[in-house]
C-alpha cells in the first residue's frame, strides 16, 4: 500500500495563529510544518511542548499533540514526555524570555542529560506578549518600557551558553530564511540528543529588527568543524548572526542510558519487594541495594 507523502499543510490545525501580521513566528511555524512533512512525522506520535508567551502559543496551530505548559517550564515537561515514551518525537518551543529568563535554570540540565528532544527558541530579543520590555537577550543600551534610560545588562549569548552547557546539537536559524530553518529543524529532530535551535524571529511591533538582522546574517563558514567544541565556542562568542549548525556531538541520550540500566536491572515486583521487609526476617536497615 502506498502511503501519500505528507504535505506541510497536513500539519496545520484549524486554529488561526494569534500573532501580529509580519511576526517572525509565522516563518518559524512554516518551517516547522515543512520540516515535519519532510520528516514524515506521524502527528499522533509527535508532541510539541511550549511555555508561555507569543511563541508558546505555537502548539495550538499544529495538528500534533501539544502541551502548553507554564512560563519557563517546557524543558522539564518535555523531558517527562520523552522519558515516559521514548517512541515519541518531542519538540519544545518558546521565546527568549521563557527560555533564558524564567526558564534558564532548566536548560543546562536538559542539555547535560542529553534528552532526545529538539528545543526551538524564537528569539526576538524582547518581551512581545507583555508589550515590549527587555529580555535576557536584549542588547546593551536598548530602550524599552522598563529600561527608559537604556538596558544596563549584558545579553546572554545563547549559542555560547548552549555549547558551554554540553548541548549536543547547537544551531542558529532565522524566521526570514525558512528554507535553511526547515533544514536545521530536520537535522535537530534527527539528531539523537538535546538539539538547541535558536531562531531569530523579529517582533515587528515592539522591536522591529527584521531589516537590520537580514543585513547582519551570514552563513556559518563551510570549513567550520561542527565536531570541534572549542571552534564552536569560538564561533558562538564571535557574534550571533552566523546561521547554521554550530556544534554537533553524538553521545548517549538519557533514554539510551536508561534503557541500558533497565536491561541490567534484575526484574522484581511489589510482592518480592515486600518480602525484603518481612519482620521475622529482620529487614535490611538503611538504603536498599540497587541491582
Amino acid at each position: 500500500m502506498s502511503v501519500e507523502t505528507p504535505k506541510p499543510k497536513d500539519y496545520k490545525s484549524d486554529l488561526k495563529p494569534i500573532w501580529c501580521p509580519g511576526c517572525g513566528d509565522f516563518g518559524v511555524l512554516a518551517s516547522l510544518y515543512r520540516a515535519f512533512a519532510e520528516l514524515e512525522l506521524d502527528p499522533a506520535k509527535t508532541v510539541i511542548v511550549s511555555g508561555i508567551g507569543c511563541s508558546s502559543r505555537l502548539p495550538g496551530f499544529v495538528k500534533t499533540y501539544g502541551f502548553h505548559t507554564l512560563h519557563g517550564r517546557p524543558l522539564p515537561v518535555a523531558m517527562g514526555v520523552k522519558l515516559a515514551n521514548p517512541e515519541l518525537t518531542v519538540i519544545a518551543v518558546g521565546g527568549d524570555g521563557d527560555g533564558f529568563a524564567i526558564g534558564i535554570g532548566h536548560f543546562p540540565h536538559a542539555a547535560r542529560r542529553n534528552i532526545d528532544i529538539t528545543y526551538l527558541v524564537m528569539d526576538n530579543e524582547i518581551y512581545g506578549l507583555t508589550k515590549g520590555q527587555v529580555s535576557p537577550t536584549s542588547a546593551v543600551d536598548h530602550k524599552a518600557p522598563t529600561t527608559p534610560w537604556g538596558n544596563l545588562e549584558t545579553p546572554i549569548n545563547t549559542l555560547a551558553f548552549a555549547v558551554a552547557c554540553s548541548a549536543s546539537f547547537v544551531a542558529r536559524g532565522a524566521s526570514f530564511n525558512t528554507k535553511a530553518l526547515t533544514e536545521l529543524i530536520v537535522q535537530g529532530v534527527e539528531h539523537p540528543g538535546f538539539s538547541f535551535i535558536d531562531a531569530l524571529s523579529p517582533c515587528v511591533v515592539f522591536h522591529n529588527t527584521q531589516d537590520e538582522w537580514k543585513n547582519l546574517v551570514t552563513d556559518v563558514a563551510p570549513d567550520h568543524d561542527v565536531a570541534d567544541r572549542t571552534q564552536a565556542f569560538d564561533l558562538a562568542l564571535r557574534g550571533g548572526f552566523s546561521l547554521g549548525v554550530v556544534y554537533r556531538e553524538r553521545r548517549p541520550t538519557l533514554n539510551e542510558r536508561y534503557a541500558q540500566l533497565l536491561g541490567a536491572a534484575k526484574t522484581s515486583d511489589v510482592d518480592a519487594m515486600l518480602d525484603a521487609f518481612t519482620a521475622r526476617e529482620g529487614v535490611a536497615m538503611g538504603g536498599p541495594a540497587a541491582s
Binding site: M79, G80, V81, L83
Partner: peptide, 10 residues
C-alpha cells in the same frame, strides 16, 4: 513539571 509531562504521555 516532568511528572506532568510523563503523565500526559500516559
Amino acid at each position: 513539571s516532568s511528572v506532568l509531562g510523563a503523565s500526559y504521555a500516559g
